[in-house]
Every structure is written in C-alpha cells, then in structure tokens.
Design a binder for these strands. Structure first.
Lengths: 230, 230
DNA sequence: CGCGATTTGTGCACGTCTTCACAAGCGCCT
DNA sequence: AGGCGCTTGTGAAGACGTGCACAAATCGCG
C-alpha cells in the first residue's frame, strides 16, 4: 500500500515523543486517514496490535520498515543536476529515511566534475561503471523532458528496475520496471482547478447544489458538490 | 479530474509538432492512459470531439485550460527557500504553465534579503503585506516539518485557500482550504517496496503465484501477483 | 447520393477501495 | 475471580473507478 510510508513517518514522530503504544485512532489522526482504513491496512500486513491497548510503536516500525524493504540502505543514482537535481542531491529527507545517493550524473560536459554536497558529478555515459561499482537500486531522473526517455533507457540497460521520474513526460519501459512520476507543475494545476471551482461557486450563488460552470463555447461541465476527491 | 493536467501537457506537445486533431487513442498513448478512460474524462467535461475525426487540439487545450482555471495567471507565494525552495523558485515549469512566483518568504532572518533568481526574499511575517500587494492564489510550503503548520496557519490567515505542502507532515486546515502534499521520500519508499517485492519473488521461486514474505516475528504478509496498484 | 471506414460517447459489468458497525479479545480494577 | 471498558480485527454494504464493447455519428470516396 502507498500509505505505509505515511504511517511510518507518523510512527517515528510518536516514538520520538516517547510513546510506546498507539491506538489505531491516534495513529490514524497523525497520518491523516480514517481509523478503520488504517486498521485494515495493518491487518493486511499481518501485524498484530493488542485489543484494548493498541499497537506497539517500536514493533510496528520494525514491521513496516521490513515490508518496505528499508532494512537495507538502498543506493540511488540521480541523473540531472540542474535546478531540481541540485536540491534533490542535498535533500536530507533521503538520507534520514534509508536512502543513499550513490552517484550524481549529468549529460552536460560542463557540469561533469562539479562537486555538489561533497559528491562529484560524473557523465551519464559512465552509468555502467557506476552500476558495476555498487548495486544501484533506484534511478531518479531530474532532467529536461527531452532527455528523460534516453536516460530511462540507459538506467534500464544497467539493470535498474525502479525509476522516479521528475521530467514532465511519460516514460516507456519494459515490463518489470516500476516508474513513479512526480510533476510539480501538475500539482499546482490541480490546486488551480480547485481555486477555479471555488471561485465559480461563490461567484454564481444561484446555481445551488449542482453547480454548472459555463465554458467558453457554450458547453457546460457538471461538477460535484463539496469534496472533489482528486 | 487529476488527469487533466497530463492531457494538457500531451496536447501542448501535439500542438507543437503541428497536429491539428488527435484521436482519443493517440492522445491516450501520449498521456499514458487507456483510451476509454480518456474519452470518459473528456465527455465529463462536456467537450465534444467529432466522431470519425477526433478532437481539435487547439479547442481542447482551450477548454481544459479554462476548466483548470489557467486562463488567469495565478500568483504563488513560496515559503521556505532552503534546498528545495531554491529549486522551486527557479523551476521554469511553473512559469511556462501559467503560474507566477509572486513572493519568496522565509522565517530565517539570515535568508531575508537574499536575492534568488531575481527575486528578493522577504520575511514570512510580511505575508499580510505581500497578500495586500497582490492576490495570492496558492501557497507553497517548502519549510522543515516543524515550521509547516505555523506557515500554513499564516497562509490561511491571509486568505490563501490552496496549499502545496512539501513538508513531511500532515497539515490541519479549516474546511474550504485545499492541501496537496508531495513527499519526495515517500515516493522513494514506495519504489523501495516494489524492489523488495521483486527481490522476494525471484528469491523464493517455490512460493508460486501467491507469494508469502516471511516477516521477522514469524508473521506473514500476502502480496498480490503482478501489478500492485499503488 | 450512398456506403464504408473510422472514431466518439456511453451503458454495463467487474473489481477495488472505503466506511460503518459490531463481535471478539485483552487488560485493569475491584 | 469476575466484570467492565477499551481497542482491534473483520464482515458487509456502498461508492467509486476502470475497461470492454457497441451503437451513434461523421467524413471521404466512388
């Protein structure tokens, strides 16, 4: 489940504040989800809480970390050290949660050799050597969209089976390779959509429960009432 | 729908390569989704394509941009100019897609006054003045988790109703305020989970279709077979 | 003018996710 | 030892999203 990392973070917070056990409702609040959903998720793991008491925080952390495969520190190769790549290279949230940036790579010869956060940028064509030096578990693509597919192919060629893609484009990869995409601009556009929706609702008070937003060409769009679950 | 921005990006690509119309299948491929799903999404908008031909690219772009509220250029306030904030301030994907970073803010007095990408950092307590100067539509939080809730409260206080949160914590905001969260470490952890799953499957060839991954305490977790839809 | 090729829009069925509600179990207090 | 309150785990119902498959509609060509 995609919610496990969120639970894990909440659990670490609870552990730091000295909690030994936590109820499903307490953890659900800390993670921002429904308590029933959380219990079902945890029961799916097979993890046991004790009825009447709750979950053992330390034990639960251990279990979730094992399921997520965080018991081994995974090596990450970061390709593209532009604006975003720079920030990712220095992002301490990676190191603190079991990931180690093992290599910085870029296709621009002008950037090769540059030192970023104590690590030297190497050329992306050196990927085979890098992969030979240490087993790369995950590749992160922070290049422009035009280079992303090429980089993905290179990552796949050296055996990387998990890719985190920040480039605004769809990657085609063979079966067995997992790709997750993060597009910062898309997040803003979704927020913009909600802004637009809210503005339409307050601006057209007569439309009531089923608001209709007129489109330029005379077309209409029917929108939900309160909580749009995007 | 959360997929509209993805369609929009694909449409812009198509427009640049000179396409005037596009079929649902063509656009679906470019956006990485099923063609039936795309058609259903678009029909939900009320947008009309022409049967036998496809969708008019320019018209569709116009419609989607309107629905997303991108016809007006929205002002974004970015709070927290650390590693990530720096990168976001310089991320050209924002400007190119209708967003304008209207203010950079930080709570650290040492950072106030610094110039980043041609913009001066102001103190976060100046938020009311900033909001008075121009209408802030969206707030972006790129602070440490410990400061995020406080910043969120300040944003809400000046009337911001959409927040993009990069801090690894859950924000509590009043009804009517939309929050989207992006946690880069969580994305990596999800990939780590998939890596772990794949490793377990190949390492335990006898378990067959319903693989059981033994947990440290003798507990077991049942995992799906191929595509885990996280 | 008519026909076939092509593509949209959508009814329907299926699987997944979510939520409620409650029985089962555990610990504590008397 | 017994009962009481609290919490987990889960069955069932409902909402939701997804994808197939096909009818309706439009264009181009003969």
């Amino acid at each position: 489940m995609a919610r496990l990392p969120e639970y894990l973070r909440a659990l670490h917070n609870l552990a730091e504040t000295g909690n030994e056990t936590v109820s499903s409702e307490g953890l659900a609040n800390a993670a921002g989800v429904n308590s029933a959903k959380l219990r079902k998720d945890l029961s799916h793991l097979g993890s046991y809480g004790t009825r009447g008491v709750g979950y053992d925080v330390a034990l639960l952390i251990e279990q979730i970390e094992y399921v997520l495969g965080l018991t081994q520190r995974r090596a990450v190769a970061l390709v593209g050290v532009g604006n975003l790549g720079h920030a990712l290279a220095g992002y301490d949230g990676f190191a603190s949660r079991g990931f180690r940036i093992a290599a910085l790579l870029d296709a621009d010869p002008a950037r090769v050799g540059e030192e970023i956060h104590g690590m030297v940028v190497r050329h992306v064509d050196e990927l085979p050597q890098v992969a030979a030096e240490e087993s790369i578990a995950i590749g992160v693509i922070a290049t422009p969209a035009s280079a992303a597919q090429r980089v993905a192919d290179q990552l796949v060629a050296v055996g990387v089976t998990s890719i985190l893609n920040f480039a605004p484009c769809v990657l085609s990869v063979p079966d067995g390779v997992d790709v997750r995409k993060v597009d910062l601009a898309i997040e803003l556009q979704i927020l913009s959509f909600h802004e637009h929706r809210k503005a339409s609702l307050t601006g057209l008070p007569g439309t009531g429960g089923s608001a209709l937003t007129a489109l330029p060409g005379g077309l209409v769009v029917t929108e939900g009432q309160e909580a749009i679950g995007t």
